[in-house]
Write a protein that binds this DNA or RNA. Structure first.
Lengths: 207, 207, 207, 207
DNA sequence: GATGAATGAGTATTCATTCAT
DNA sequence: TATGAATGAATACTCATTCAT
């Protein structure tokens, strides 16, 4: 007898499933995946512990859905901004805005980001989700910037690299705090670097 | 009634303590800290479970020593390279070598790196160790490059940023694999960017 | 994240909680608190080890409830008898009955008494419970006997002393067995002494 | 191969064995039998953990010797006092002194007394030792008082009862502290009661 | 005799998952 | 569908005792 997980069609059921996902999101954010036990999730969602297994195969299944939501929250604002660009000049001018958007997204989702990121090593699913996230962002934006004529060579590599830089900076900005760093200066360097990156021509470093 | 942990002085004892650390290192690398239980560590080290607590206060204590070793493995080769530089030209020319060194260190310690990094969120000690690691690297290298006349302004910010870029790239290179990325091209971009970063003058991006 | 302990409202749950308490009572009686492990308690109660922690915070919590029950078993019959007294003559005549009641209570609860008593030294909670037990008995009975006009001076001291004597005798009677002692004679001495004690006037021994 | 426990004949060995016993005595007094582990005992005695098992079969064996010493400390002063009595008047007058001696012995050995007493339930050996202690005291003193003409009937019962009363009072005095008790008054009652006890004639309480 | 490192059985507690109602 | 009581496997740590040196 294969275990059956209800696919809720009733409105009330869908609402209940969402409550569980939201509870998971909040708890994972606050105390991390391992410290958030299913009883706690059910309680916060206002449902019984048993019914959780009516909507989700197991605890990891909740994590999967939470991850999907997180991924959306992160990508949407960036995609939105890029879809509004209409010229190469626009693109160049928008870099500071992109930096701010990414920074904001990190600040608002720092808890869940950390929780998910820390599972990357032990959980192949989560790892795959993060890789897919990067794929989506990179390919979409690279295509858009190529379309706009901003990039013509190494577009994927440049966008991917830019994304790495931004993530790294955002992480630094939100979590770590080194006293000897002037974060405004660092932000300036990031913007300069990203700007330059978009214009680096093809060639070997020794050239 | 303070718990006493043997500080091994005998050669055989030191050897045994090291076996336990090595077993911890390997297990944490392979399956992560949480999945590696003390019985497993003892078994892999070829000792009894009891004696583990003769050398370590608790499981976390093993982690601490493993972390220390990891930190050393990561920093030593970089410090070595920088201590050998004698001129600004040297420094510029050494960037590809630095990239290779960091890449190599990541490749060789990928498992433990991930295991430790994933504890950063939940474990303040490990988090502090990572922050300290970054502090050490940044300040030492920034001082060295200032001394050599390579950098004169925003030295800490530039070096810290460069370090972030390198880590990010190494991580990408070792763990993720995006089919659409040409990693040689990406490496070229990284080197170019680092080279440029060392020469960015003070100023605002809007200037 | 306060640990939650079910407060059972369902009849079946209450019954189950009581089964666990009873199992604890019996096991502590038979083999003492330290030798009675939670698995054994669960097994004797016919439940899983896990559910024990659904009803009790920890092992000590079971002990607490067992102690409370023991205290009740000991005090109730004594209080009952004293509440039925109506005259000083009644009180004097009831002394043999009191002795028999205390003896009976000790016989029936000898195991748990010893188990609990042996924890008095190392466990402040249990110690406090025993002290409170003595307080309750002494103060209530002293008040009653004063009210009846049996005692008018040093009431607390006399009652407390009487209680000590009775406990001591009951202990002797139940646990120890010295061949050279005629326990009927000893019982006679105890009764005589208690009777006299109730009539000792104020004064110094040298008077 | 029967396990061999060395019976030390050398002066140095005897001295070492005594150091272990003393260490056990102190530790059992301070933190109780169960909290005093063999490593701690060896450390305090200034010997290795291994050699402890050269002189004692097991941990309980140390306890046995510690108990013997305790028994001596308790009985000696009482025996001494009684051996000095020469007349019935002497005996009557000495009651306050006996009370003080017992009180003093309890005060000075309260730690070990509690530690040993709490083992009475779970450890038959200790229990037997306590019973034997009572036997010795009762029989010796009863014989002496009969010899002196102080007691002629129910001597064993009377002395045993007196001993119980004294122990009970000493325990009360040293460990418990009830605010509502005037301990000087209680002491007076004890002395009065003991004095009376020595003179109670044979008979039934109903007579 | 003496050392102290090594052994390994023993135990309270948690929590994802199931199931009787 | 829903409940929440029940399950039981899993795990860090202690300590009396042994044994190689």
């Amino acid at each position: 007898m294969a275990k059956t997980v209800r696919e809720p069609r009733q409105v009330r059921s869908i609402e209940k499933k969402n409550r569980i996902i939201r509870a998971g999101y909040e708890l994972f954010s606050d105390i991390g995946y391992h410290n958030a036990n299913t009883a706690l999730i059910a309680k916060r969602a206002g449902v019984s512990t048993g019914i959780v297994y009516g909507y989700f195969r197991d605890k990891k299944d909740i994590l999967r859905e939470v991850t999907a939501i997180y991924m959306d929250k992160i990508t949407q604002p960036v995609f939105e901004l890029f879809s509004e660009l209409t010229s190469p000049a626009d693109a160049a001018a928008s870099i500071p805005a992109v930096v701010d958007i990414v920074l904001k997204a990190h600040k608002e989702n720092s808890g869940i980001h950390e929780a998910l990121h820390s599972l990357t090593h032990t959980d192949p699913d989560i790892n795959a989700a993060f890789i897919k996230l990067e794929d989506d962002i990179t390919l979409k934006i690279a295509a858009r910037l190529t379309e706009l004529g901003v990039l013509n060579e190494d577009a994927n590599e440049k966008v991917h690299f830019a994304m790495d830089i931004l993530q790294s900076f955002a992480h630094e900005y939100v979590y770590d705090h080194h006293e000897y760093i002037d974060y405004d200066r660092l932000k300036f360097l990031v913007i300069r670097t990203l700007t330059a990156l978009m214009g680096i021509p093809h060639g070997k470093p020794t050239e």
